[in-house]
Each structure stands twice: as C-alpha cells, then as structure tokens.
Amino acid sequence: MIVLFFTLIGIGVILAFIRVIIGPTSPDRVAALDTMNVMLTGLIVVLAYVFNRSIYLDIALVYALLSFLETIVISRYLEGRK
C-alpha cells in the first residue's frame, strides 16, 4: 500500500518537475514549483505516518509556510513596476 502512495506521488512530482525544467516562461516554472511544494508537504505528512513521528508534522507546516511565502515573493517581483 505504502509503495503505491509513494509511486503515485513520486510520478506526480516528477511530472511537475519536468514542467519546471521545460516551462517556457518564469510564471510557468513558479506555478509548477508551487504545485510541487504542496505535493512535498503531503509527502512529509505521509512520512510522519510511516515513521510514526509526530514531530515531522511541524516540519510539514514549516515547509507549507515557506513555500507559500516563496510564491508570494516571486509573484510580487514578477508584477513589476508600472
């Protein structure tokens, strides 16, 4: 069962990562990176379940916060000046 989850999430992350590499413009890359980050947050929660450590949930929360901040900062940069 666990192998199935990891396989599916891993394929999803790899597909998103292909878009990060080939994406024609930088918003494409950021969008793919944002999707990838949310997937990795879920992956950390699954890891907490597999290893039975509740402290990994804190790490997942910090990762979610930092990925959100990254998206916001890059978006505010891309908007540019008028």
Binding site: L8, G12, T35
Partner: peptide, 8 residues
C-alpha cells in the same frame, strides 16, 4: 497528486 502533476 498524480493528476495534478499530469495537469501541470
């Protein structure tokens, strides 16, 4: 998650 990657 897999569908999200495919959609992206």
């Amino acid at each position: 998650y897999f569908l999200g990657g495919l959609g992206i």
